Computed example of a mutant assay.
Amino acid sequence: QVTVFGLGGSSSALAQETQYRLFRYGITVSAQCDPYLMRMTASTLKPGDLVIAISATGRTREVIGAVELAKHYRANAI
């Protein structure tokens, strides 16, 4: 499973665009642009799953927190 996290104008749009592009390759993917859904999704991930985090600044607290939670459950992150 692949999930894409992005929060805010351009990051949310890019997260959804990433979902559309990966979907066309037959990859099971979802994009989350709400901080609560990011954390809920992150808590369901497992080893072998992948999070793609998108942040223009690289410091978006909500995205970083969700990625850390995903890593706690041993998912991979980019």
Rank of each mutant, 00 (worst) to 15 (best):
C33M: 12
T57V: 08
T18L: 09
Y73D: 06
T44N: 13
A66G: 09
I54Q: 01
T57N: 09
A77T: 07
T3R: 12
A75Y: 00
R74T: 12
T18E: 05
A53I: 02
R74N: 13
F5T: 01
S55A: 11
A75L: 06
I78C: 12
F5C: 01
H72L: 12
L14C: 00
G8F: 02
Q32W: 06
G6P: 04
A15K: 00
Q32D: 11
S43K: 14
L50W: 08
A66F: 02
L45V: 08
Q19E: 15
S55K: 04
D34T: 05
H72K: 14
G65P: 00
M38Y: 05
I27D: 01
V51E: 04
T28D: 14
M38V: 02
S11K: 02
L14V: 11
M40H: 12
M38L: 10
L14Q: 09
Q16V: 12
Y20A: 15
A15Y: 00
R59T: 14
Y73T: 06
K46D: 09
G58H: 05
A42P: 00
I52G: 06
R61G: 06
G48F: 06
P35V: 09
A70G: 07
A15C: 09
H72S: 11
E62F: 08
E62C: 07
P35G: 03
I54N: 04
V4I: 11
M40A: 15
L50K: 09
I52Y: 01
V29T: 11
V51R: 04
Y73H: 15
E17G: 11
S11E: 02
V67Y: 02
V63Y: 01
A66R: 02
T60S: 10
I54G: 01
V4E: 08
T18C: 10
R59F: 09
G8N: 07
I52C: 04
S30N: 11
A31V: 05
F5R: 01
S55P: 09
I78T: 14
D34N: 14
L69T: 10
A42W: 00
L69S: 05
S11A: 15
K71N: 06
G58T: 02
I54K: 00
G26L: 05
A75T: 02
V29S: 04
P47L: 08
A31N: 05
S10Y: 10
N76G: 13
A75G: 03
T28P: 07
Q1Y: 11
Q1L: 13
A53P: 06
L37D: 10
G26H: 04
A77V: 13
T60V: 10
V29P: 01
F23R: 15
V63D: 00
K71I: 07
F23G: 12
L14S: 03
T41V: 08
I64N: 07
G9M: 07
I64C: 11
G9I: 04
Y20P: 00
T28I: 11
S10R: 14
A42E: 03
T44K: 15
M38W: 05
R21S: 13
L45Q: 04
K71L: 09
G58Y: 05
P47K: 12
D34C: 07
I54S: 01
G9K: 11
G6N: 07
L50Q: 03
L69Y: 03
A31C: 08
A77G: 05
A31W: 00
H72F: 09
S55Y: 02
R61H: 13
C33R: 07
A70C: 08
T60Q: 03
V67I: 10
Q16T: 13
